[in-house]
Design a protein around this nucleic acid. Structure first.
Lengths: 229, 229
DNA sequence: CGCGAGCTTGACGTTGTTCAACTAGAGTGG
DNA sequence: CCACTCTAGTTGAACAACGTCAAGCTCGCG
């Protein structure tokens, strides 16, 4: 599968995580010895639902999807570079409740769980920060549950497009970075309906679509669909 | 609204929370001085979506629902005595993303947030435990998102009934403790359909229903509906 | 140039919501 | 104690939303 290497220096890492600044240099260096860097190609699995976590996964480069497997997959959310893929399994139940796969070429730092927990215990400020991150990640899911259980197709797709524009790509014009099927899985609808509504938005001048390239022309209308359901 | 009092002694509290045993007696006593006990009657709001949290809420007695307001409400989950109602706002974003209301007569310990955070910072083992609890609470929501986005009516209602029997009441025969409308809001469906499927389950001998009293007769069939969607 | 995966559109059947009418029971005032 | 009213629950029927099936399309790649 994946190319494996050891970190040169976490202190000088260009993809350094914001969380690290609360640790002492000595502790940061200790991470180097308990960390493996793995590169994944588009489509490869980073972890599988049902297995147990032995490492904390920090996403240095790329984008991944977090999804629940089944007859049809359900994408819970995307994670972009600079975030932990998963912190829950570090402190809570060790079993992954979802699978993770690379959306493009990614680089993941796998840090030994026991080691990281040990550091957290010794550095309350650091643990505090991690806890804050875990706490806030729940808010996304409240919104998600609300969205999919109350809104209908147009509203849900608008939600997803806004999510991609604001949370993931930070721009109004972006490459989808996924198939229509995945877009549907992220919006809890059938692939055919995702396509249909995309076409509708295009016909109404809300979006400009060229293959996977999407440009949001009328953000306010998208927002209205999102708000009104 | 509600009857207010001060705790006599958290050390001897009959509703004492499991989390307290990691704190020193001195610290537990300090909680007493930063804690207000409030009693709520059925239906009363304990907190409202959109407001800011200033206290951690520990549910000593009763059951509460955590719900998102809208034209139709959406019940995210129930919480029973002996659990925190909310820990996310203690460490993460302070704004409540949902409202909380009493399902029956309840008793809530409201502990000053700053004080509790201070204790957590000084007691890594305690903070560790709280973090573990927060981490695990996410798992319920993964399941919830999966359930409501993939299963249809019968499967979703079966999920809710199993949830009530196993997680909330810990018995196969229980009082619903809520209206049919609330049961529907907990299962993401219309009230009419919740009633219809209850009748169906009753006709098929899966449930025995007398008003709000529900007895699960054929758990395996309920489970099958839950599994197959 | 042909093949296949991903995409697109239409038609149709199923699922679920909404509307409406009706019932049962609890609470209220004469 | 009985009529009255109000709320929760129940059931049927019409309608809308959504998924599925099927057919055809496009584009990149060998």
């Amino acid at each position: 599968m994946a190319k494996i290497s050891k970190p040169q220096s976490c202190l000088q890492c260009p993809y350094k995580w914001k969380y690290l600044n609360l640790l002492k240099d000595k502790d940061i260096e200790s991470i180097q010895n308990n960390c493996t860097i793995i590169n994944f190609k588009k489509g490869e699995n980073i972890c599988k639902q049902g297995t147990d976590a032995t490492h904390a996964l920090y996403l240095a480069k790329g984008t991944v999807k977090l999804y629940i497997e089944g007859k049809k997959n359900l994408i819970l959310k995307l994670i972009k570079a600079g975030e932990y893929i998963d912190l829950q399994t570090l402190f809570g139940d060790k079993t992954y409740k979802y699978s993770v796969a690379a959306m493009n070429d990614t680089m993941v730092c796998m840090i030994n769980s026991d080691h990281l927990r040990g550091l957290a215990k010794k550095n309350p400020a650091y643990l505090f920060d991690l806890t804050k991150t875990i706490s806030d990640s729940g808010n996304y899911f409240y919104k998600k549950i609300n969205d999919i259980s109350r809104k209908q197709l147009r509203g849900r797709l608008a939600d997803t497009l806004i999510y991609l524009a604001e949370e993931i790509y930070n721009t109004q014009e972006f490459d989808l970075g996924m198939t229509r099927k995945e877009l549907a899985e992220l919006s809890s609808m059938s692939m055919e309906n995702a396509v249909r509504i995309l076409s509708e938005f295009k016909a109404d001048g809300v979006l400009e679509i060229k293959g996977k390239r999407i440009k949001i022309l009328k953000y306010d209308i998208l927002k209205k669909f999102s708000d009104l359901g």
